[in-house]
């Protein structure tokens, strides 16, 4: 019996190790590629894994004079931070209103939002572009423009947060109201502290999304390279023929993006799990 159990465990370990290798291999390759020199060796794609000579050329390129990489990085950071902050506030507001208050048209509102959510996001890209342009928030104003777009519709993503609010007993609210607290006080002083995990989850998810936004971001920046975010700027290095031999630089830049985002994610993983699990159950 014990031997059987041990055999079972061994198999489990082998499977887990295999999975881990598959999961980490692409990242490992990516790191190796980023250390290949675009000057000494070749900056494009190659069909071997280990660089013939390790070098930091690609990283140096990102920070050398005339490179806009830091600018793009800062843009993305700003977008991510402000979006995370404002989006979290919006989601909390909407979730509280829908979870705690009963008003005329509440059901209808939720249904309309559900219907709106069934349209694919890319459908309205051209219209959003011109709306933003009317507000002067394209090209040079693309960074605030993207924040506006990210935040404006974030109210519709209330499901997970509202689901969590629903689990906080309403009797707490009622007790506080009897003590004379207003709705606003209840939200700020009671619900928000109790809902900390889901708030961190909301902020984390909204912080991570802008790092991968290259479609709409490139539309809004409209060729104004000062307004690019990292994703927009770097996908050009891979996809347009104007940039020959930029592949290793893409890898290097990508790794510098991945490191902070990954660290942040790992630190807040606990909350993320809580969020997705709650979201999965509540739908």
């Amino acid at each position: 019996m014990k031997a059987k159990k041990r055999a079972g465990l061994t198999v489990t370990y082998i499977v887990l190790i295999l999975i881990s290798i598959i999961w980490l291999f692409p990242f490992f390759c990516l790191v190796l590629q980023s250390f290949r020199s675009y000057q000494g060796e070749f900056g494009g794609m190659v069909n071997y894994l280990v660089p013939k000579k390790f070098s930091l050329d690609s990283y140096k390129f990102l920070f050398q004079e005339g490179s806009q990489y830091t600018r793009w990085y800062t843009n993305t950071l700003i977008i991510a931070f402000v979006t995370a902050l404002l989006q979290t506030i919006v989601v909390i507001c909407v979730s509280y209103a829908l979870s705690r208050m009963r008003f005329a048209g509440r059901r209808a509102l939720m249904n309309v939002w559900l219907v709106l959510g069934m349209f694919p996001g890319f459908l309205t890209m051209i219209c959003l572009y011109f709306l933003l342009k009317q507000l002067g928030l394209t090209q040079a104003g693309a960074v605030p423009g993207l924040i506006l777009i990210n935040v404006a519709s974030s109210g519709m993503g209330y499901y997970v947060c509202k689901g969590y609010f629903d689990t906080i007993p309403k009797s707490l609210d009622e007790a506080a109201r009897i003590d004379g607290a207003s709705r606003a006080q209840i939200l700020v002083q009671m619900i928000i502290p109790l809902a900390k995990p889901i708030i961190i989850y909301t902020a984390l998810v909204s912080f991570m999304a802008p790092w991968c936004d290259y479609i709409f971001a490139s539309y809004v920046a409209f060729g104004h390279s000062d307004s690019y975010n990292v994703a927009v700027a770097m996908q050009r290095w891979v996809w347009t023929n104007d940039y020959q031999g930029y592949f290793t630089r893409f890898c290097a830049g990508g790794i510098l993006v991945a490191i902070p985002v990954t660290i942040l994610f790992m630190c807040l993983q606990k909350y993320y799990v809580e969020g997705v699990t709650g979201g999965a159950v509540k739908g």
Binding site: G43, G44, M45, V46, N47, N241, Y243, Q244, G245, Y246, F247
Partner: peptide, 9 residues
């Protein structure tokens, strides 16, 4: 393909 940068071999 026609991009040297993507031509690995």
């Amino acid at each position: 393909g026609s991009s040297i940068s993507n031509a690995a071999n």
